[in-house]
């Protein structure tokens, strides 16, 4: 494999030069509380420190920027910054108004949708930073050349499922709030096929499947897009890393520049689109919780 050979050549000077496979695997391993890659598929004693740090930091940045706009918001002529934030707020408010018909619920759900939208855009946009920049910075800060770090929180299934489960909990909350416990239980057993004792188990199973499918697809869609995007950036980075002064490596380097530019430009669309889809589905699912079957 030429890429691997070239990469190996390029890192011959360094000791323990990683192969392309090692490079990718290293970049896809989280900095977690155990200090090494998580071995089991599910282990709730572990926390991914990098995902938590970057998502919390970007979340704080989101609310801070929004708060900056809100603090100086006037009904007079708005500054450009205020107008930009207002544009987002109005966009989200309009979408929420069209989907959720309860004004009381919108007071919480619309701000939530706004936060989620901007927060996910920022988390997705971590992809635009050079893939090695923050990890190698972290490695030099810790003086550990094998320290792990992933910088795109939405390329971690924990983050996206965490948010989609949050939406699921809100769906439960609004189901109970709007329909009452009895009403919701009644709906769980009588919808979608009808009110007949023989149909109760089938209805309930269908409802469980519906909630599970909504939640998992909600989280998985965002995760899949961002994971694939991140992986592609790493593969593109491998081309540039193959630089060794030879003709082939020069061609790969040019390929890196071309492919990196093209993918980054295309990725802008994905970053915004996936954030928008996540926000819209949040509104749609919560809106569905307001409506009876």
């Amino acid at each position: 494999m030429p890429i691997e050979e070239a990469a190996t050549q390029a890192h011959e000077a360094a000791t323990n030069a990683p192969t392309a496979g090692e490079y990718i695997v290293h970049h896809l391993t989280h900095l977690n509380t155990t200090g090494h890659a998580q071995s089991s598929i599910i282990d709730f004693s572990v926390i991914n420190l990098d995902t938590f740090f970057y998502s919390a930091a970007l979340g704080l940045l989101t609310v801070f920027v929004l708060w900056l706009a809100a603090r100086n918001a006037t009904s007079g002529v708005p500054s450009r910054f205020q107008a930009a934030v207002e544009f987002l707020v109005e966009m989200v408010a309009d979408q929420a108004k069209g989907i959720i018909h309860s004004e009381e619920s919108r007071k919480y759900v619309a701000p939530l949708a706004l936060t989620v939208f901007i927060w996910i855009i920022l988390m997705n946009a971590m992809d635009f930073l050079p893939v090695d920049m923050l990890p190698s910075l972290w490695q030099s800060v810790t003086s550990d050349h094998h320290a792990y770090m992933r910088v795109v929180p939405t390329a971690d299934l924990n983050a996206t499922l965490g948010m989609s489960i949050g939406v699921l909990l809100l769906c439960f909350y609004y189901n109970i709030k709007i329909k009452g416990v009895g009403g919701w239980v009644h709906e769980l057993f009588t919808a979608p096929f009808g009110n007949h004792p023989l149909l109760y188990p089938i209805n309930f199973a269908m409802q469980l499947i519906e909630f599970a499918a909504k939640t998992i697809s909600h989280g998985m869609r965002l995760f899949g897009n961002m994971y694939a995007g991140e992986l592609l950036f790493m593969l593109i980075a491998l081309m540039g890393a193959a630089w060794a002064g030879t003709g082939t490596s020069a061609a790969l380097w040019v390929g890196h520049v071309l492919a990196g530019s093209l993918w980054a430009i295309f990725h802008i669309l994905i970053v915004i689109l996936q954030a928008f889809i996540f926000m819209m589905l949040t509104l749609v699912y919560i809106g569905q919780a307001h409506e009876g079957h």
Partner: peptide
Amino acid sequence: MNLNATLFAQLVVFFVLAW
């Protein structure tokens, strides 16, 4: 794509930010 307690941390952050 391993699942761990980051999920719950993210869940809490999600609600705090929205609040």
